[in-house]
Design a protein around this nucleic acid. Structure first.
Lengths: 206, 206
DNA sequence: CTAAAAACTACCCTTATGGGTAGTACGTCA
DNA sequence: TGACGTACTACCCATAAGGGTAGTTTTTAG
């Protein structure tokens, strides 16, 4: 039997979740429900939840700070964010804070219960649109101003290779490598390796 | 009717997918199946697929390069990776290359068909363990071996500052900065700025 | 076919970087 | 109290990196 606590300030939603879990499942029990993270955190040692269902918009400490906080105390507890926000910043912040999954409030009952099962199975449930956001964050969209050769050179530079290493690897002279790098700096408006690599990475050129 | 192409060198798997899609769905049709990315790419303009089912281990161009390539030609086509690898590097590389979803080959028929529906609905299907990997990548767990001072120095280094810049900024001598950097290299087992910054970032130290 | 764009080579010069070695000073934990 | 970790300073040396200039060849696009 997995112990669940709910952190949700809207009483109706809180009760709906509780009812749903208690009537529709036999593997989960809601040991407590709180309206604020502060309250939940104060009782963590007593509740020892396996799973926390966490809202984001909460009075006082928000759900993301709460997530970070709870994970420090109970690192093995899974925290499932249930939020109205599909905004990418919220999602990433929550995941960075240590949330296990992120589903939206408009998910239906079946989806919520499946999410609980997925969490228990070591998974990371995310609603379709959320998963899309996460995947999108891995993608590079923008057009690179760099030529293929320059991109090759920059990639090697990013690996920590020296001019000579790069020259050997792409079979050109050291001066040619230097030439390409000078052009890269010009295009990216930087003046050293680190800045070039950092900028190129953030822009998705490499 | 969504058009699908399959890129998979194993004939049995290829035919299994094809059969599955043709017999179990009415919204999808397999317009072609190829054993290599090269073949698939050569026929892209003719096939104009809505969805590409892509293997990773392929003779010649691998599935990740293939994904990058296809996305350049047909940016609106969804590419669903179907791979045996649950290795995080493969997953991230695939997502970075522009894959829409990543499911493992041991997924059952229902899961594969659901993945197709999710892709069509604008989602990003991932099998449970894959989603977990992705979520984990947002997390920072490890303890930094660096002292506070070293971390400060490394952060400035990561901004592209020179030894002198850093010295001025933290009000120590250039030699002291050098000293810290030497220790950073020692601790991170690297030998230049780029490697240090890259490693520290990937380990979450900065 | 021709004019760019891209890739390439070369040389000069200054500063930055990385590696080695040798110390001092301060706080803390055993 | 004495070893250890941290922070700091200093000097030497070789090589890497960055910036400037001046060209040739190859590819690509109009």
């Amino acid at each position: 039997m997995k112990k669940i606590i709910i952190v949700e300030d809207n009483k109706d939603v809180q009760e709906a979740f509780q009812l749903l879990i208690e009537t529709q499942t036999s593997n989960y029990e809601v040991v407590n429900a709180y309206g604020t993270c502060e309250d939940a955190i104060n009782n963590l040692e007593v509740d020892l939840p396996d799973i926390v269902l966490m809202d984001i918009d909460l009075p006082g400490m928000n759900g993301i700070e709460g997530t970070r906080n709870i994970r420090q105390t109970l690192p093995r507890t899974d925290i499932l964010i249930i939020s109205v926000h599909e905004n990418s910043q919220y999602v990433f912040d929550a995941l960075c804070a240590g949330a296990t999954g992120y589903i939206t409030k408009n998910s239906n009952h079946t989806q919520l219960l499946r999410a609980l099962d997925e969490v228990s199975a070591g998974g990371a449930p995310m609603s379709t649109q959320i998963a899309k956001l996460v995947v999108k964050s891995f993608r590079r969209e923008s057009e690179s101003p760099l030529t293929n050769r320059e991109t090759d050179v920059l990639n090697l530079l990013a690996e920590g290779k020296s001019y000579m290493d790069i020259a050997d690897q792409i079979s050109v002279s050291k001066d040619t490598v230097k030439f390409h790098i000078k052009n890269i700096y010009l295009k990216l408006q930087v003046s050293n390796k680190i800045e070039a690599v950092t900028k190129a990475k953030s822009e998705g050129f490499i």
